[in-house]
Design a binder for these strands. Sequence first.
DNA 1: ATGACGCATCGAATGCGA
Length: 260
Amino acid sequence: MKITTWNVNSLGVRLPQVLDWLASTPVDVLCLQELKLTEDKFPLQAMQEAGYPHCAVFGQKTYNGVAILSRHPLDEVQRNIAGFEDEQARVLGVTVHAPGGSLRVVNGYFVNGQEPGSEKFAYKMRWLEGLRLWLSMEIALPRPLVLVGDFNITADDRDTHDPVGLHETIHHTTEERQAFAGLLGLGLIDAFRMFEQPEKSYSWWDYREMAFRRNKGLRIDHILVSEALKDKVSACTIDRQPRKNERPSDHAPVTVELVI
DNA sequence: ATGACGCATCGAATGCGA
């Protein structure tokens, strides 16, 4: 079973690329972030025709918005973090009922934070603590959990092309990395780091200055799995191919493969 | 470096992303 996370930076613009990608990479569950559209504009029919009849959508105009497309039935849809008031559509939790068993999938478009010390950064830290508290309850339930999304955090210096120049800047601060570690502390494991990976593996590259061609990127899109899934993860990979498209998203899709 | 690039917005200059 394959689960993918992909920040598409406007589904309206990226839909043809998403459909192309799914045609060549038929994953079981696709978690999208930054739809930048409302639920009524979500291309439900196109997704159904692509083989994803089960969709949960939490949209928002202009900014944010998340969705989960699935080949398998899903239910228990949670919009945003339980117990955390939020104006912005950033989180979608569902239970996917795959043939090999059911699992909880939480898809998040984490707060960017703009700049350490700013009001947006304070919101990011509050949001992260709200997420940790909610997931501490989710993870206590007797079912496997997968947390995916655009975390907007580098877990450590391996995740950045410039650890010195970007030291303590946004996505690299000690506070953000402690919050990431706090999620691991719940009993979640960074699936990507379970395997030997190429040096300088990133999931996002700035549109400017030919950052992709020069591989000046960050790994900020992550997949964390609960302990029960630890021995069932067979691969976790970043697909750089869609970043080479014309008019690509600035993020690449990240996929985890589970033997269930 | 108040930059770059791309997307969105009631119309073009600005907010935001990361």
